[in-house]
Structures are given as C-alpha cells and as structure tokens.
C-alpha cells in the first residue's frame, strides 16, 4: 500500500475567496453589461489554474480591464465596500506595457492573495488593471480613504513589492474625488 503525503493533494487555502472580473468596452452596451465575472477561487492552486488559463494583460485590447476583488465586492465605486474608499494608482507609460505591465499586475495579484499587507490586508477590497492606449493603469482599491495608517502601510509595501525606486512616488486618491474631478488629474490624498 502506497502512503501519499497530504501535501501532494490538499490545496493551500487562501485567507479570502476572490473573484476575477473582465471588462470589455462595447459602446453599444451599458458599463455594467460590459462587466463579466470570470471565476472565483479560494486556494493557491486554483488561483494559478485561472491565471495560467487567461490572457496576459498586455495581450488585451485597449478598453479592457481585469479586476480581482474579494468575494461579495463588485469592482465599482458604487459598491458599499468601495464607496468610501480609494486607490493606490500606478500609471504606466507606453513603453511600460512591454516592460512592466504583466510583471506589475502579477505582483499585485500575489500581494492580494498572499495577504501581503498583514492585518491591514482587511482594508483591501481588490485591484484593477486598465488597458488603455494613452497609458495603462494598475491600482489597489482599499475600503476607507480616512484610514491613513492602513493606507500608508499598504502603499509602502506595494511600492516596494513593485520595485518602484525610492525617489519616485505613487499617489492614493479617493473614488469620490476621481468621480467628481473636473480635469484629467485627481488630487492625491496620500503619497509614498
């Protein structure tokens, strides 16, 4: 009789169950109709099964998004868990689609599923990558733009994980400011 170690068949559970969403910009449909839930997972193995199966962000056409959110939170400002929140925003230039986009997005996913922000990870709602001709964007969304301690911790760890140089800064913006902005830029509530 062969003894099989549990290590070889038990999947590694995640702290949270996550949902991966896909947005494709079809101007004949409403924003919400363009948003589709791809799949949910709650183990490390199922995360990789999904990630290995889908297109890299850099292969998506302009106007598409991937969003990874905790189960029960929809990837939109209006969701109860997002509406008082904001995001750490990484803006990429055109060269970075080839150099950094896929690497940064995978690192973002690993931060989320691995709970990289310790107890402040509870403040994380999800993350979004936007593929856009004028420049791609990646962001981690958190629940409460007043929670300075959590937001700055998350921002510092995130910046380090992405390997962004000390001398460069990233900014955190509230969704309410993003939604009501008049120009092309939103003011930063926090910077690290």
């Amino acid at each position: 009789q062969e003894i099989v170690s549990p290590e070889s068949y038990i999947k590694h559970p995640l702290q949270n169950k996550w949902s991966l969403w896909f947005f494709k910009n079809d101007k004949t449909k409403t924003w919400q109709a363009n948003l589709r839930l791809i799949s949910k997972f709650d183990t490390v193995e199922d995360f990789w099964a999904l990630y290995n199966h889908i297109q890299l962000s850099s292969n998506l056409i302009s106007g598409c998004d991937y969003s990874l959110f905790k189960d029960g939170i929809e990837p939109m400002w209006e969701d109860e868990r997002n509406k008082r929140g904001g995001r750490w925003l990484i803006t990429l230039n055109k060269q970075q689609r080839r150099q950094d986009l896929d690497r940064f997005w995978l690192e973002t996913l690993l931060c989320l599923v691995g709970e990289a922000f310790d107890d402040y990870s509870d403040e994380v709602c999800g993350a979004v990558v936007n593929i856009r001709t004028k420049g791609d964007k990646i962001a981690i969304w958190t629940a409460d733009f007043d929670n300075r301690e959590a937001i700055t911790h998350i921002g510092r760890v995130y910046k380090e994980r992405l390997g962004i140089p000390m001398k460069m800064t990233i900014g955190y913006q509230s969704h309410s400011d993003t939604a009501t902005k008049s120009g092309s830029t939103t003011k930063n509530k926090f910077v690290v």
Partner: peptide, 18 residues
C-alpha cells in the same frame, strides 16, 4: 484569528508544482 499569509516565493513555487 490567524491570517493565512503566503510570501511571493512560496506562491511562485506553487505555480510549477503539479
């Protein structure tokens, strides 16, 4: 309770395992 934390090295190793 305890939080289930995985570092990037562990997560990346899981990618190639069967």
């Amino acid at each position: 309770g305890t939080r289930i934390i995985y570092d990037r090295k562990f997560l990346l190793e899981c990618r190639s395992s069967p």
